[in-house]
Amino acid sequence: MYAFDIERPSTIADAVKALKEEDAQALGGGQTLIPTLKQRLAMPSALVSLTGIGEMKGVCLADDGAVCIGGATNHATVAKEAAAHYPGLAGLAANIGDPAVRNRGTIGGSLANNDPSACYPAAALGSGATIITNAREIAADDYFQGMFETALEDGEVITEVRFPVPEKAHYQKFVQPASRFALVGVFVAKYADGVRVAVTGASENGVFRWSEAEAALSADFSAAALDGLTVPADEMIADLHGSPDYRAHLVKVMTGRAVTAAA
């Protein structure tokens, strides 16, 4: 680690102000950033911790029934407090990492980092969530822009994520056995106006929607509806744990299992 200053603002306004300093870096639960610092792979002048900001924490329901989660809410809290309202989302949160990760890592941190194998991007894209920042509201379909790339501007903070609640949903994760991130994870959500299928872990472009499956499942919400569909292996991730072909195959298998579990 290199030396850095640490700021612990208690309001969003103060956090945004602190992040205007040159080379200041927002710190959520630190589950990616702290290991990166330990490896001396980043040299921020200051870390601005977001976890002391009360207005960015907790789970609540909006008037339209959407589940609203503060950007600094950790996974364990989501797993517990969203369970009654959106069990598919709570189930995903309950299986991120291990207990230590779930009690430190935050939804805002995960979405801001947009690791191509992280779980939350699948939930946000699969639910058509709205990413709310200190400056604006961003639809999930516009938010994810490739591996580790998002629509966030420098210094912009995710204050809240708003999830419309589907009729049914399920997340199926085939874990990468070392990191326990998703080798392939598929979030399926059935809404009144159609089905959304979001895939994480598989693509070099980060989380994506599998539109052919969405169309087929919107017509018939059953695993059998996927028969005959194939997922192209182009631009799938190749690494120690799986080839592009394997990942493409798993996308279909995990989608089918998610549908069966949700149905």
């Binding site: 056995p177 070392a178 990191s179 690494d239 120690l240 744990h241």
Partner: peptide, 9 residues
Amino acid sequence: LSASYMDYV
């Protein structure tokens, strides 16, 4: 390639 617990199982 498997030089950390993110990849070494």
